[in-house]
């Protein structure tokens, strides 16, 4: 266990996280190549999210979730190039996440066009870009799950 100081604007939070929760994105995110070092911090019990918090910029953080909880059929192909880039020996050691966006009215959308692939062995990660897909950067949550996700944030 290591204790990181996560700076929120105007505040500093000591957050205990294990080394296994630290990930490096060697190429950053699409449009933001400098967003490279992150910690995956589980939300308090009962929340269906995880927070992907930048270790370099306190104001950069994502709400993420496992897209297969919401869309069991969502199976983006992970190419050999991606596996090599994040030094993953096989797709079995890759954890897939998608970022969530909270809209003005409290509803949520998921970015399924650019999911995140993390290697649990090398702890390297990257943002995938899907080609020839119907998925968008603002995919509506399934109607059956919308209320639960929304209520989780309003608590």
């Amino acid at each position: 266990m290591t204790v990181l100081e996560v700076k929120v604007p105007g505040e500093v939070w000591p957050v205990a996280i294990s080394e296994e929760a630290l990930f490096t994105f060697p190429s950053g995110f699409v449009g933001y190549p400098d967003w490279q070092r992150f910690a995956l911090i589980p939300a308090p019990e009962g929340h269906p999210f995880t927070v992907l918090q930048s270790l370099d910029d306190a104001e950069v953080s994502f709400l993420v979730t496992d897209p297969r909880i919401l869309w069991p059929d969502y199976l983006p192909a992970i190419s050999h190039d991606v596996l090599a880039h994040i030094e993953a020996s096989s797709p079995d050691v890759v954890q897939l996440l998608c970022t969530l966006n909270v809209q003005q009215d409290g509803s949520m959308t998921a970015n399924l066009l650019g999911p995140i692939a993390l290697s649990t062995t090398s702890r390297l990660a990257c943002q995938l870009v899907l080609y020839d897909t119907e998925y968008s950067t603002q995919h509506e949550l399934p109607p059956t799950r919308r209320a639960a996700f929304r209520a989780s944030l309003a608590r």
Partner: peptide, 15 residues
């Protein structure tokens, strides 16, 4: 994707 990343990351402190 760049716009989606900016919107998702910078909206508020998720912690």
């Amino acid at each position: 994707l760049s716009e989606a990343n900016r919107a998702a990351a910078g909206a508020k402190s998720h912690l």
